[in-house]
């Protein structure tokens, strides 16, 4: 009996789907190779161990319910994503502002977001303020504001003095592009860029 035929018979038996003919075929194979029974037993044991472990892991699934309220995303969160995508597209296409002739600007004070997180002036290792650099380097009206920082991690400092806090600084920017694209996936799972429209222009106050 081929190893493929044997693995199918063993699998059917482990599954509880074996017909009497399957049992007979396996018994016939075992007559010339008694190890078949050991392989059957080990496969059954592996299956039982896996089922038990999976059951335990899936207990988490029983706690997950459909969200009670509508979980529609607020419009601003959608547009924040688009803004980030547009900024990335600009960076990728190289049509952003010319950074070659800019010099980082000194800033007298850190932005509010950082100050709130780390405590104003408490950390002498604070880098030169990147927001200031962007403000100086970007065309007028490009840099809008710094949003509150998002903390990623915190841990005791290695020298035992204070905490090391890891955070992401978020800069709200504005740029003008000719066309926006959304990255979707086609039926083969490959990424494809799809042009999107934001609808007709309506007058609204600037951010």
């Amino acid at each position: 009996m081929s190893s493929v035929a044997e693995e199918i018979l063993i699998s059917r038996i482990v599954d509880g789907n074996a017909a009497p003919a399957d049992w007979s075929a396996l018994a016939a194979a075992a007559a010339s190779d008694p190890e078949v029974w050991a392989r059957l037993a080990r496969t059954g044991e592996a299956q039982n161990a896996l089922r038990a472990q999976l059951e335990r892991a899936l207990e988490a699934a029983d706690c997950v319910e459909i969200p009670a309220a509508s979980s529609r995303r607020p419009r601003w969160s959608i547009w924040t994503g688009w803004a980030a995508a547009a900024a990335l597209a600009l960076a990728w296409l190289g049509i952003g502002w010319n950074r070659g002739d800019r010099v980082p600007a000194e800033s007298p004070a850190g932005p509010a977001g950082f100050d709130q997180l780390a405590g104003a002036g408490s950390d002498p290792t604070t880098p030169a303020e990147p927001a200031g650099f962007l403000r100086e380097g970007a065309p007028p009206g490009h840099f809008l504001e710094e949003l509150p920082a998002v903390m990623v991690d915190a841990r005791p400092a290695s020298d035992g003095n204070g905490q090391e806090v890891y955070y992401i600084r978020r800069l709200l920017e504005r740029a003008r592009v000719d066309q926006m694209y959304q990255v979707n996936r086609n039926e083969l799972g490959q990424p494809v860029a799809v042009p999107v429209s934001t609808g007709p222009a309506v007058p609204r106050p600037p951010l």
Binding site: E7, I10, D15, A27, W37, A41, R42, A46, N48
Partner: peptide, 30 residues
């Protein structure tokens, strides 16, 4: 499924964890 079960069994045999290698063949028990 059949191939997956065989691969899992072989991986466990190589790793020597979980189900211990079976005692001498016990067809009746199986």
């Amino acid at each position: 499924l059949a191939r997956a079960r065989r691969l899992l069994r072989e991986a466990l045999e190589r790793d020597q964890v979980g189900p211990a290698p079976s005692a001498p063949p016990q067809p009746a028990a199986a």
